[in-house]
Every structure is written in structure tokens, then in C-alpha cells.
Design a protein around this nucleic acid. Structure first.
Lengths: 114, 114
DNA sequence: CCTGACAGTATCATTTAGGATACTATATAT
DNA sequence: ATATATAGTATCCTAAATGATACTGTCAGG
């Protein structure tokens, strides 16, 4: 650990990943490439339009996600991960791997407690 | 990206790191080893006793931090990272590195916008 | 005798995140 | 004529996170 507490930038990365739906949204875009708004919505059960819009806007503001509007009617809007957003992929994967082990560990612990 | 959205465990890792003070607390414990309660408090400007206690308890509940009480008076309580907690270090470092670059990128962007 | 250090807890208030629901406009399909 | 799909907004409400402040008991130092 080389970095100093007063120069801690963990929060900056965290703030981008945090949000009830953000990891799932990123995962979908990483796995399936470009997606339309309702396409995403349908593949994320439980999310409301408002939340999907909000989280996408926040990701867009940080250059993680790109939003392309087609001037058609009915409207067509496509979302995709930016080149820059892809740089988060290793972190997402590391967290996923850690999370998987952690969940397993918890299950084992609960069993021992029975 | 090999893992599926319905098996996404990113949130599990995230939930442990999230908390306004958790990264900073972990960083201190990683950098300086065992610390007493008020020692931590003094090195984290702005944190209240309540919040420090709360975040430490949450980290303890997940086996990330160990709490050792010395039956003395006045009380003495020592906190340290567990072996297991150390497994989070690569993720913290990856996030810090990413966060540093991200902050830099933002600054550059703002300058261009002037 | 009074004060400060220690490691907290308890209570209340505020701030932020998230959710439910209704609404917009236009075009195609029935 | 009505329903459906598109991609959203607007408004209101609840729940969770965080913060401010006051309090606890005991001991050592002045």
C-alpha cells in the first residue's frame, strides 16, 4: 500500500460504480454491446424507468456510457459502453470474483453455525 | 466478461466497500497496522464517533476487521485488518489507481471547457 | 475537586437514494 | 376508435445513510 489516506481516490472509483443498478447495467452493456433503452429495461427486472434513466445519465456524465439519439419517431436511443468505460472492466471482474468467494464463505459460515 | 447478470456478485463486494468512511478506514489499517479507536478517529478528520463505530462494526461483521478489547480501565480497543480483509487490497488498489486517472481526466476536461 | 482521555451509546434531525404512479408525443397495428 | 410501443418527465413518498449533540463510567494528573 503506497498511497496516502489524504490522497485516497478509492471513493472516486466507488462513486461511479455505486448505485443499486449500475453494476448490472454495465454488465449488460459489456456482455451484449449496444442496447436500446427498453431493451435494457426488459433485461433488468424490477428497475423503473426513472431509475434506469437516472443511472444511465450518471454513467453518461462520467463518460462511461455513450448515448446516441436517433431522430426518429417513435424515438430510438442506443446505449453502449465507451472505450473509457471499458477500463472499469478489470475492477468489475475483480469485484465479481471476490464477491463470489465472499458469498460462498458466508454460506459456509452459516452452515457451521447451525 | 464471462459471468451472467443474474449471477452478478459485484454488489456483494461493493456493499462492503461502500460507506462514506470505509475505504479511508481500511486504508489506515492497511498502512499503519493495528490502531486504537481514538487513534483512528484522530487520523480521519471529520468523522464522528458514531460513524466510526458504525463503520467498524459493519466491517467487523464481515470479517474484514478484527476488534480486540482489553479489559482495562480506561478502555482499550484495538482494530486491525484480518487476513481475509487483506484479500480486498488488490481491489482497493485497482480502484485507487483508476480513481486517480479519472480525477486527472476530469481536471483536463474542465480545463478544455474554459 | 475538577478536567481530560478512553470507547463508546442514545436521541434527534437532515440529507440522499430509491420507488410508485401518472403523464407527455407520435406512429403503427388492430 | 383504441391499444401499444417508443423514451422519457414530473410529482410525491418512503427508507436508508449520515450528522449533531449530549450522555455514560472510570481512572490518572493537576
Amino acid at each position: 500500500m503506497k498511497y496516502e489516506p489524504n490522497a485516497c481516490r478509492v471513493e472516486d472509483a466507488l462513486s461511479i460504480l455505486v448505485g443499486k443498478w449500475k453494476p448490472i447495467i454495465l454488465l449488460h452493456l459489456l456482455n451484449h454491446g449496444t442496447q436500446r433503452f427498453n431493451e435494457l429495461r426488459r433485461s433488468i427486472p424490477g428497475i423503473t424507468q426513472k431509475m434506469l434513466t437516472k443511472q444511465l445519465r450518471e454513467l453518461e456524465a462520467e463518460d462511461i456510457v455513450e448515448r446516441v439519439i436517433f431522430p426518429e419517431v417513435p424515438p430510438k436511443v442506443e446505449y453502449s459502453i465507451t472505450e473509457y468505460g471499458r477500463s472499469l472492466q478489470p475492477i468489475l471482474e475483480a469485484m465479481h470474483d471476490w464477491g463470489t468467494k465472499h458469498t460462498l464463505r458466508k454460506v459456509k459460515k452459516e452452515k457451521r453455525a447451525e
